[in-house]
Design a protein around this nucleic acid. Structure first.
Lengths: 243, 243
DNA sequence: TCAATAGTGTCTTTGAGACACTATCCG
DNA sequence: CGGATAGTGTCTCAAAGACACTATTGA
């Protein structure tokens, strides 16, 4: 993490100071309904990797509006819930997973993005390893990013931004490990990069970079599969810095 | 701009489809008040450069809450206003400037960040050239980022994030030109980088990089100032890609 | 032995960073 | 002329990219 030169209080310190302010007599006189309040939701771009595709979870809309189209999972932010908590809750509800990579993407608030009312949505994106996944059901499906159905609202724009962010991030950081099982071969890791980036990489250069970065450590296990030379299994090295 | 592989509709297309959905009979039956709606504001981190400091605009709080502290300018998002419009409006109100760099930073929505009520704030940061600036007044002041007063709410965290984002961005893009007047010397440009980054740069390496990037073009004018060799003036080359 | 995948090294190019002197103007 | 800032080139190092062959296994 980058070192800051701004003196920053912790969330707990801020909360304590806010709490102190609430004791003021002005607090009881304040009218919170003086201003217009739009609805606030979180929307999630949940990515996973299949054997050959980067996939995203979409939900079939059975009702108005945009009935018949597919939408990103999302929902209202509840009264006492942080934005990231709301995102984690949605992720848990839709996929059953928790403790995966989840990061705020961008906030979309165009006044006419939802026909029901003004909705400001805070978009997050999540990366889920394929082995933690629930299967597709009728109304909740994994779609290849290259074969998308018609999307509801402005969800095409949200997804597009998420994809570009993921591609930049996988080049700059070790975020690719979020897609991997605990142990993996370097060829599997290379496939992950290739699927996310949508282009092939040179095997020798890839291995040079990954091994040179210190981000992985080898195990003493081999991956036996098929009639060919077995591959060594590697693990993510938690101590290592991003590369 | 990066080329996307997701088919993305324009905002106008989305708006037209949303408008079509509003004609549905369900639209009239929908109750928008079923869910909790927090307040939504925009907060602005407005940076400028003085001769020796990176500065940020803060507003003195004369009332509860956090009376006596300083806060980022900000305000409620109005009913028919996009988030970026709200940010531009705030910027215009506080500084009188428009058509400057303004970009969404992050959205802060911790439930206890404001003692009045639940406020979700979409933070933006703006870069304003010093020659477009209004002077400080009693309640609206430019502060060096190295000499900050006590800030209200979680504005220290917002400012910290904005500073880190700006520093990364100035290394990756030509955003530094947002701080410059139309014509400038390379020494002035280097000072801009140094002030933002908080460290000194090598003159020869800096000029090599800037001139090699194609991001600037020289003019035939010289900058006469004081009893020393005059410097050549350069302009930002709008045709050039980011560097 | 062959089909299939694992694994390995060198050369070139590019960009970043360290480093010190000459040029030009004004008073 | 001296004070002040403008302007200039080389070397080293690291990282990225192009490129092709050998190793090991199971059938």
């Amino acid at each position: 993490m980058e070192v800051s030169e701004i003196p920053v209080r912790t969330l707990a310190e801020i909360e304590a100071q806010v709490e102190a302010e609430k004791q003021s007599k002005e607090a009881r006189e304040y009218d919170p309904s003086r201003f217009y309040h739009p609805a606030v939701t979180v929307d999630l771009v949940i990515f996973t990797l299949s054997e050959r595709d980067l996939q995203v979870l979409l939900i079939h809309r059975d009702h108005w509006p945009f009935k018949g189209r597919w939408a990103l999972p999302g929902g209202f932010v509840q009264e006492k819930e942080a934005l990231s908590q709301a995102a984690h809750r949605q992720l848990q509800e839709e996929t059953g997973v928790s403790e995966v990579f989840l990061e705020q993407l961008h906030t979309f608030g165009h006044p006419h993005r939802d026909p029901r009312m003004r909705v400001v949505t805070v978009a997050y994106y999540a990366l889920v390893p394929a082995d933690k996944l629930p299967p597709s059901t009728e109304g909740v499906r994994w779609w290849s990013i290259y074969q998308l159905p018609e999307l509801a609202f402005d969800h095409d724009r949200i997804l597009d931004l998420a994809l570009n962010r993921l591609r930049r991030k996988i080049m700059d950081t070790n975020v690719a490990f979020q897609f991997m099982p605990e142990k993996f071969t370097l060829t599997q890791l290379q496939r992950t990069y290739e699927i996310v980036l949508g282009r092939v990489l040179d095997k020798r250069n890839f291995r040079k970079k990954v091994l040179g970065s210190g981000g992985v450590k080898e195990t003493d296990e081999l991956h036996l599969q098929g009639r060919h030379r077995p591959a060594r299994l590697y693990q993510f090295d938690l101590d290592a810095r991003d590369f």
